[in-house]
């Protein structure tokens, strides 16, 4: 299914270019002001408590030169395995829960309970079950993120207009085509929204798990704080934040590209 041209939107884009550039001028000004304030604040309180913007940039260079930053890459690789597991498990479960009343009745109480309950309480138990290695961190990431995928997918299936299903039936669509041509496309934007929210949770799970067992990025964060290398610490925090924001933005983009018809979604959670 190639992306069809989008005449209406193309026309708008030309007209809004001017306001778009003004938006970025405003952003640069305000962000610049924030960075200057940060610089002044950092110099005032001194490197023992904080790091100014320039110091943080210096810290970033040190992180890159020393190669310490690549620990983050390893952490993210491990996070992605838990996140992918959450997608692989969460999407089918969400589809089933949305489509089958029986399935939903059985799973709903557990999913809701786990969704609002404090997953963090499970950490001491998970560590006994899985040790401190790869399995433990994958499981934490998985448990933190999977319910967002499940609940959003389920909401997507349940939000499908029953009239559309009836329409497909009136054109003699067999069950599998109703699934493929109505249920899946109708749920897609919700699945993508779920994956986007889940990514933030996965990152959260990754950090908590690694701080808890003090490995990789978690160990680096602790080490830098202990030696009061706050320039490098803040640089690392900034990199994690920007990566998270970029990944979320990228998934937003995918959502808009893959489902241009779905503009506003009520997504559960966050």
């Amino acid at each position: 299914m190639s992306a069809p041209p989008f005449p209406a939107r193309g026309r708008i884009a030309a007209g809004t270019r001017k306001t778009l550039s003004r938006k970025w001028v405003q952003r640069l000004l305000v962000w610049g002001a924030i960075i200057i304030a940060w610089e002044i604040f950092g110099r005032r309180v001194g490197p023992f408590f904080f790091a100014s913007f320039t110091q943080t940039m210096g810290g970033l260079r040190e992180l890159v030169v020393s190669g310490d930053i690549w620990v983050l890459g390893e952490s993210i690789q491990q996070m992605l395995s838990g996140y992918l597991l959450a997608a692989v498990v969460g999407i089918p479960v969400g589809l089933l829960m949305g489509a089958s009343r029986k399935f939903r009745h059985v799973l709903e109480p557990y999913v809701n309970l786990m969704f609002v309950a404090s997953m963090e309480a499970l950490l001491p138990f998970l560590i006994i079950l899985f040790g401190v290695g790869f399995q433990f961190r994958t499981m934490v990431v998985f448990l933190f993120s999977v319910l967002y995928v499940v609940l959003n997918t389920q909401a997507g299936v349940r939000n499908i207009d029953s009239q559309l299903i009836e329409t497909a039936r009136s054109f003699r669509a067999p069950a599998w085509r109703i699934f493929k041509d109505v249920m899946l496309p109708g749920t897609l934007p919700y699945i993508l929204a779920g994956l986007r929210l889940a990514l933030g949770m996965a990152l959260q799970g990754m950090i908590i798990a690694e701080l808890w067992v003090q490995t990789q990025t978690g160990a680096l964060l602790f080490g830098l704080a202990e030696f009061r290398a706050l320039d490098r610490f803040l640089a690392l925090v900034l990199v994690i934040m920007i990566l998270g924001a970029l990944a979320t933005e990228a998934l937003f983009w995918v959502q808009r590209k893959a489902a241009p018809w779905a503009r506003d979604l009520a997504t559960p959670g966050r």
Binding site: P4, D161, Q163, L164, E166, T167, A168, S170, F171, R172, A173, P174, R177, D181, V182, P185, G186, L188, A259, W261, A262
Partner: peptide
């Protein structure tokens, strides 16, 4: 028989042309 509905019931993820093709795809 084929039906036309009160609330157009077009598939929002299909373009106009692909909506018209729907019944033919099913056939």
């Amino acid at each position: 028989s084929a039906m036309v509905f009160q609330h157009h019931n077009l598939f929002p993820w299909r373009t106009t042309l692909r909506n018209v093709e729907f019944g033919l795809e099913m056939a």
